[in-house]
Design a protein around this nucleic acid. Sequence first.
DNA 1: TTTGTTGCAAAACGTTTGCAGCCTC
DNA 2: GAGGCTGCAAACGTTTTGCAACAAA
Lengths: 154, 154
Amino acid sequence: MTNDIQQQVRDILDQYLKSHKLRRTPERYALLEEIYQQEKHFKADELHQTMLQKFRVSRATVYNSLDLFVHLGLVMRTLVDNVVEYEKCYGRKIHYHMICSVCGSVKEFTDPRIALSVNTAKYSRFTPQSYSLNVYGICNKCRRKIEKTNKQQK
Amino acid sequence: MTNDIQQQVRDILDQYLKSHKLRRTPERYALLEEIYQQEKHFKADELHQTMLQKFRVSRATVYNSLDLFVHLGLVMRTLVDNVVEYEKCYGRKIHYHMICSVCGSVKEFTDPRIALSVNTAKYSRFTPQSYSLNVYGICNKCRRKIEKTNKQQK
DNA sequence: TTTGTTGCAAAACGTTTGCAGCCTC
DNA sequence: GAGGCTGCAAACGTTTTGCAACAAA
């Protein structure tokens, strides 16, 4: 089941490289495989570090490949608290992020009504392929802390 | 009407600084005013440059203030093509971005059904304040180019 | 054989930091 | 007068670049 996804993204990359006459280098496949084994989002350099324990790649290749995967819609790039993070996105249940603007924590959620409305919206002069939704606010933990502080001040 | 918004964001900042016992420095007000005169999104350093023609501010202050405004929900931070961009967001009609993954162009759109579904979604252990939606895909311009190239290859 | 891709290291870039001095309260 | 904020410049972390060597087609 999980291997199935691995196989599918590998095929997508394969097809793309072939049809665009680009090189199918071991680095690219190794990176894609590693990304699809990760469960959480990660920074580019974290991926580089993890990778080095299994397969020798340079930082430049990591960045090049990430750009390629993002372009192919296999990887999603997001900004959290002024930090760029990546995560696999093919075959994952579409999900959104709740980002706490106080502590910066990120939680995922899903919502079929949001999915429906985005998928069926009318896009003028544009062919949509994927999307990302970030909801900013305050998590309960931080809210409790703030309320506590406010009480003490009185 | 436009001045109205200027006044309102100024008041929000004012209230916040007062109630949090922070300093109401001229730099902060000047920056906020400048941002609300901009019609397009901008990079932090672009803001700094524009600013320098009118009012002396250091880069550090620009970054500090942007963080503050983002925190206050007066300014929105987004990631486009690995570049961080800002835009005013108070009093603007809620809008979303269509981002072309080929040429990187950004177009805005609105959709009441998306707005409704996001606003009425159930958020567990979280109090939402704002959100940003980026739809990635291919703009018509780029699509035509690609189709043209494909035809020529045959 | 051709040329896209890699590794490497240096450079460029964007953002943060530490500190002295200033100015708001 | 106290201390939050600023400007400045240096430091920092991240991303890009140029080039020689390599390897996929």
